[in-house]
């Protein structure tokens, strides 16, 4: 008897101690789990990249293959196409977790939902925004983007797409409970993307004209800082609405 009581006591202690494992553990676990899940579904990671490449291919065909003309509009084209590619992948951000119920488990954890949502968004950025940013210079070559702006293009996309993931996740969280939220999601999120687009494409333009790039990048960073503070709270509130409704 005493032995089993002791075991029970131990178990209770473990159960009680677990939440104390703390935020870092929970966030790390969410990060690892999401990374693993996404890496096993490679097509979901690759699709936005392929979409990005195809859309960029459409522009020379639709407008003109003239390198001078393409070079003039390349910064905007690359940014808009990358933005749309990132947007496309947003719908699946919480979808699978919503369908199999693991999102509800996230809501039930003692850790703040905002931080766990932030971990999920971070994974989204790592596997969508960052690859898009790394791929953009290659497509830039195809659009005859003037030399000297490639690094700025990649850096501005990497910085900007993090804000895009954070803002977009609010929309994804609001629409995850709806069966056909895809188009609605773009309607909600695209107007909010405009500041990021302006300063992101502006940074590349500035690099081409030889102006100072730092001002644009600094504002992109400021937008990211703001989004990092406010977006997780909005995402958490939106997820609660979608789950309870």
């Amino acid at each position: 008897m005493p032995a089993s009581e002791g075991a029970l006591g131990k178990e209770e202690a473990v159960v009680r101690a677990e939440p104390r494992g703390g935020l870092a553990v929970a966030v790390w676990a969410t990060l690892k789990r999401d990374l693993l899940l996404l890496l096993r579904r490679r097509s979901e990671v690759l699709n936005p990249l392929v979409f990005f490449a195809i859309v960029i291919t459409l522009f020379p065909i639709g407008i003109s293959p003239d390198p001078a003309l393409l070079a003039a509009i390349a910064p905007g084209l690359l940014w808009v196409a990358a933005l749309l590619a990132a947007l496309l992948s947003l719908d699946s951000l919480f979808r699978a977790d919503y369908d199999d119920g693991s999102l509800e488990q996230l809501l039930l954890t003692p850790q703040p939902l905002a931080m766990l949502a932030l971990a999920k968004v971070a994974v989204h950025w790592l596997l969508t925004g960052l690859p898009l940013a790394l791929m953009a210079p290659v497509l830039g070559i195809m659009l005859a983007l003037p030399a000297g702006s490639y690094l700025v293009l990649a850096v501005s996309l990497a910085l900007g797409s993090a804000s895009l993931s954070l803002i977009g996740a609010i929309g994804a969280a609001l629409t995850v409970g709806l069966s056909r939220g895809g188009v609605l999601l773009s309607l909600l999120v695209l107007p909010l993307y405009i500041p990021v687009l302006i300063f992101g494409a502006g940074a590349v333009q500035a690099a081409i004209f030889g102006d100072s790039v730092l001002a644009h990048l600094a504002i992109l960073g400021a937008l990211l800082a703001l989004a990092l503070i406010f977006a997780p709270l909005a995402i958490a509130a939106s997820l609660r609405i979608s789950i309870n409704g």
Binding site: I170, G177, L178, L184, A234, I241, G245
Partner: peptide, 21 residues
């Protein structure tokens, strides 16, 4: 967004969050 929800309470709260954002 308000029109997309079946439940009125969710629609209200979602529209509120979006308006604040």
């Amino acid at each position: 967004l308000r029109g997309a929800f079946a439940s009125r309470d969710s629609a209200s709260r979602a529209a509120s969050v979006l308006a604040m954002v």
